[in-house]
Amino acid sequence: MIFAKIKGSKRQPPEHRVLFVNPESSNDFHFYLPPTISEKTKFNPEKKLDSHEWFYVELSPDQIGSMIQPYLINENSSADLNKAIESDYSVIEVVYRVIHSTIIFTKITDSFRIRNRILLKFHDLEQAKLIKEESSIEFSGKKDAYFDGNNRLYFRDFSKIRSMFPGIEEFYREATQSEKQEFLDNDLFDVEDIEPDQIGQRDSSRIAAILNDDTIGLRDGSNTTKILRAAQEFAELGIHVQSGRLIMKDKKDLHTILNLITSRYYISDITGKKMQSYGSAALDTTE
C-alpha cells in the first residue's frame, strides 16, 4: 500500500493518508520497489558516497518505535486513515510504500509540487494545445530512504531524511575524544569515574549533538540554572546536585544526565505526570 505523511503544524500533529491501495495490481508502480543495495556503509557524515552506495544506521527497538512505527502503524488497518484529497497535496511531505514491514520513503519538497500550470503541448499532425495541469506532485519514485523490516534504515542524504525521522539526529556524528573530554570537564559536572573512551556510541553522538546545539547552552553555561533546576525537579532519577554541580559517578549517571539535558524528561501538560520520551525533535512551526 502507498501512503503519504502530511505536515503537522502548531495546532495539529503530522497525519498519514492513504494514497494508493493496491499498487501490486497496477503497472503504474512497478518502479517503486525496494532499492537494490549492493554496497552499504555505516553512516558517517564525513564520508562521501559513491553513486551506488547507501548509508545505513541500525535502530534500537526504541528508535524503531519512535521513527519507524508511525509509518507502519496503519499497515494492517489502512481504514483508520483518510484517503488523500486534493487539498492534501500541498502539505504532503513524505510518500511511502509499505511491503511486509519494509518501507520505501520518498521525500516531497516544494520543488516536486506542481501548482495549476498551463502547458503548451504538441501533437503530431495537429495544432498545439494548451493543457491545464491541476495541483499535483511530480513523482519519479526516487527512493530517499528504505527500512529493511529488521532494524536498518538505509539512506543516501542525511540532511534530506532528517525531518522524516524524529530523533535520527542522534546518529549525526559521534563526539571526538577531545569533545568528550570537554563535555566531562564542564564546570556543571562533578565527574568521578568516567573516561572519554568508556563512553558508548549513542551517548557519544548525543554529546556531539549537545555541544553543537547552542540553544542548550552547555558550552557558555547560559542554561546551567535551568539544567540544575530540572535535575532537582526530577530527583527520582537519582541525579545528585552538590555545590551547584551534577554528580556523575558512572555511565548510568552520564546517560541520565544526557537524557535530562536533551529534554527527554518532561511533565505532561495533560496528565501532570512525569514522563520520559525515547526520542525528541523540534516541531516544524512553519505553516
Binding site: M1, V18, V21, S25, N76, S77, S78, A79
Partner: peptide, 8 residues
C-alpha cells in the same frame, strides 16, 4: 473502488 484496504 480498488480492493486491498485493511482493517483490524
Amino acid at each position: 473502488f480498488q480492493t486491498g484496504e485493511t482493517l483490524v
